[in-house]
């Protein structure tokens, strides 16, 4: 056979290596969904990987209220009705069965100030309660009882002064 054919064998060999390598390394569920190579070319199993990501925040006070019914009743009737328990107590994760047994509580001034610090461009009215609009209570943190925690005087669950 003529030596002129030799490059052809090299090309065929290289192609074989590429296709065998592809069969070994590329997962079988790698495909273009709906024939969309532009945006949906992916490994389909990854969708389930993301669906199985661990949920940490239970979302909604109802889950917490199943046991902590006092706090649930208070806060639901208060101006803090839309504030989730987990905003201050952290994600419930597996609490209580699989732990943590006790959730951390953020009692710092800085947590309250996230909403209640007086800023010139912060909306002054709160419209999210069914009872109608109320004033968003704001304080200048440099003037308002600077050296005590807010929870010394204020009851967060009732959005009012402590009794």
């Amino acid at each position: 056979m003529s030596h002129a054919w030799r490059p052809l064998f090299v090309v065929i060999g290289l192609l074989a290596v590429v296709f065998i390598g592809r069969a070994v390394f590329v997962p079988s569920d790698f495909s273009a969904k709906n024939g969309d190579y532009k945006y949906q070319w992916h490994r389909e199993g990854n969708e389930d990987d993301w669906k199985n990501f661990k949920v940490k925040y239970k979302g909604g006070k109802e889950y917490c209220g199943e046991c902590h019914d006092d706090e649930f009743t208070w806060i639901s009737a208060s101006k803090h009705a839309n504030v989730q328990c987990e905003n201050c107590h952290g994600p419930a994760l597996g609490h209580p069965e699989e732990g943590p047994e006790k959730l951390a509580i953020d009692r710092s001034r800085d947590l309250c100030l996230r909403c209640h610090a007086k800023l010139p461009y912060r909306p002054t009215t709160y419209n999210e309660l069914p009872s109608g609009p109320i004033r968003l209570a704001m304080q200048d943190p440099d003037e308002h009882n600077t050296d005590v925690e807010c929870v010394e005087c204020h009851d967060v669950h009732k959005a009012d002064f402590k009794e």
Binding site: K51, F53, Y57, G59, N82, E86, N87, E128
Partner: peptide, 21 residues
Amino acid sequence: TFCYHRITKGLNSACSDACAF
């Protein structure tokens, strides 16, 4: 991910749950 692990289970995304406003 729009909290894909949450919205596919009928939950809201963590950010929208956390927003009291």
